[in-house]
Design a protein around this nucleic acid. Structure first.
Lengths: 146, 146
DNA sequence: CTCAATTAGATTGTACACAATTTAATTGAG
DNA sequence: CTCAATTAAATTGTGTACAATCTAATTGAG
């Protein structure tokens, strides 16, 4: 009766395990991120800023695959926490430049252990993790190594 | 200056490409799902019902990794569209049974081409897709083959 | 039996995502 | 130059996600 190869079975789709995995992994981050008062979206935004120090909203959106509709409220919250500043670019007033503050930079220290703690509970072998990583970036249409 | 192996680089995390991929793939579904008037969450809910015909909210939540806080409004919307019915179980009044209607079942025909159309634009080889699938289910802590 | 503990959904409140629209600044074809 | 087209953010509205709480039904230890 139930065709195991039916294209309609949830288990026969790639989209579903991707969607479920993404949410499950983010849930594993939550208790650690609660400790530094960030949501996952705020955390990945800070990760870009920890590396780049200062970045335009457009470029931030390209990196995170998010648009201004999502980023504007996130950045306003980070600004309210005193972690970033938001200023219009002098060269192009349309562009908004986000810059990490001293407090924002200090948070990086507190976040130090998080990535390792998460990957420790992933149950994947290093080879599987590397392969997963490679395939996901292929799907995203970007090179894995930047 | 920028350490390519820093655990803080977005590119060195698994969580980020998972999160970005999940959203990108769902975005690829959207134009097709618009055609049958469903959101992605509504679509995967209907997929379970197309296979099972009738299922409790608890079991639906286990399958989809979603709780009642998410499912209740989704199921009410599907009920409003006339695609499902929602009734308390006779044996256990705490449990709510969701059943696909005739109209809900008819929608399966309209959705027929969607999975194939999506996978056609994935750019992955069949081997990569299979490997991705296997690793994701390992991460989810479930067996890939149900 | 009986009431405390458990369970299933619903509700509430917060925070994204994202499509669509709006506003303001910049650009470039003529 | 100049105005239509483009671009960057912000805004608006809808729909999830999910933690926390609430309500009602069921269960099970004593």
């Amino acid at each position: 009766m139930n065709d195991d190869f039916s294209p309609f079975r949830l288990e026969n789709q790639l989209c579903f395990p991707l969607y479920a995995c993404s949410r499950e992994i983010i849930k594993r981050y939550t208790p650690y991120l609660d400790g530094i008062g960030l949501t996952y979206t705020q955390y990945i935004t800070m990760m870009v800023l920890w590396e780049r120090r200062s970045v335009g909203v457009k470029e931030l959106g390209d990196k995170l695959f998010l648009d201004s509709g999502t980023l504007t409220p996130v950045l306003k919250k980070l600004e309210a926490k005193g972690l970033v500043t938001r200023e219009r670019s002098k060269e192009d007033e349309r562009s908004l430049i986000v810059t990490v503050t001293e407090a924002g930079d200090a948070l990086k220290t507190q976040a130090a252990g998080i990535p390792a703690q998460i990957s420790r509970c992933s149950a994947l072998t290093p080879e599987e993790a590397a392969e997963l990583y490679r395939i996901l970036y292929k799907l995203l249409g970007r090179e894995a190594t930047v």
